[in-house]
Computed example of a mutant assay.
Amino acid sequence: MKRPLVPFLAALACAVALIVGISIGGSPGTPAGFHRGKDGTLTIDSAHRPAAPDLIGMDADGRPVRLADYAGKTVVVNAWASWCEPCRKETPALVRYHEKMKDRGVVVLGLNRDGSANAARAFAREFHMPYPSVLDPGGKHFLSLPKGVLNTQGLPVTLVVDERGRVAATVSGPLGEGTLEGLVAAARAGSPAAR
């Protein structure tokens, strides 16, 4: 007669574990220290930030570009392509932000998904992009990002790498300057952005 109580207690224990997991770490499957905002942004507590892969490659003009060259700076890495309409809409904000912040220890670095260096070069000229972009037509760098930091395969995607070379924040989709400033502030402060 006591057997029916065992499945009930097991189900109750699972429900309690799920509720505790959600209250401690956010939604099920969200790593500890990762905080997803309602707007799709992700900020990561300083103690839980994964190392960013070293994005190494050439820009559209054949010059070498490497994320590690920006050690000690906060780097806004923006994945884009010339054919991506939301990328076209957000690029002017990224250009303004780079110009405003480059002397304050924050820079923008592009990660270009175009299949043609000519298309990337034309886009960079059109928008007067003062920062380089690593060519990544096959998405190798995009796919090497640490697990859990992106929730999309689409473009644009922006991640903020803190001065220690760790992924501090990400957002999928186009972003405005306000969102960008919040993500960079969270990366520099070492805590999640205010939601």
Rank of each mutant, 00 (worst) to 15 (best):
P92E: 13
A122S: 08
G62Y: 06
L111E: 01
P130W: 15
G178V: 10
S23C: 10
R195P: 04
P28A: 10
G110S: 06
D103F: 12
A169R: 00
S23Y: 09
V184N: 03
G182R: 11
D61Q: 14
D136A: 10
K102W: 12
L109A: 05
N118A: 15
G25W: 13
S191Q: 08
A117W: 06
I44E: 00
V75N: 04
P50Y: 05
R36H: 15
A52H: 00
V65G: 05
Y70C: 04
I19F: 15
P137S: 04
F34I: 02
G72L: 13
G21C: 06
A119C: 04
D103Y: 11
S82A: 09
V6N: 05
G190F: 10
T43H: 01
L183P: 08
S82L: 09
G25D: 14
V157F: 10
F8S: 02
L155A: 01
M58F: 09
V108M: 12
M129L: 15
A124W: 07
N118W: 13
G26Y: 07
G33I: 00
H48W: 02
V160G: 03
F127A: 13
L94T: 08
T91V: 12
A120G: 12
S172Y: 07
D45H: 03
A119F: 03
G182S: 08
G110P: 04
V76P: 06
P53Q: 02
K89R: 15
D69Q: 14
V76I: 11
E177F: 14
L67N: 03
E126D: 15
W83H: 10
G57I: 05
R166E: 01
L111M: 06
L18M: 15
G115W: 04
P86V: 12
P192H: 06
S133H: 13
V77G: 01
P64Y: 11
T179F: 08
F142M: 10
L18C: 14
L180Y: 09
Y97R: 09
M1R: 12
P7A: 12
M58V: 07
C87D: 02
G40P: 07
V134Q: 01
F142W: 11
T170D: 01
G115Q: 14
R188L: 06
I22D: 08
P132K: 12
V149T: 14
C84Y: 10
T30D: 11
P53F: 00
M1E: 09
M129N: 05
G57S: 09
K140F: 03
L18A: 15
G62Q: 07
S116M: 04
G115H: 06
L135F: 14
V160K: 00
A187F: 12
E177V: 07
F8I: 13
V157Q: 05
A60K: 05
G173W: 11
L155N: 00
R188A: 09
F123K: 10
V157L: 12
F34Y: 15
H35P: 00
L94E: 07
V108T: 09
E99C: 03
V76M: 08
G165C: 04
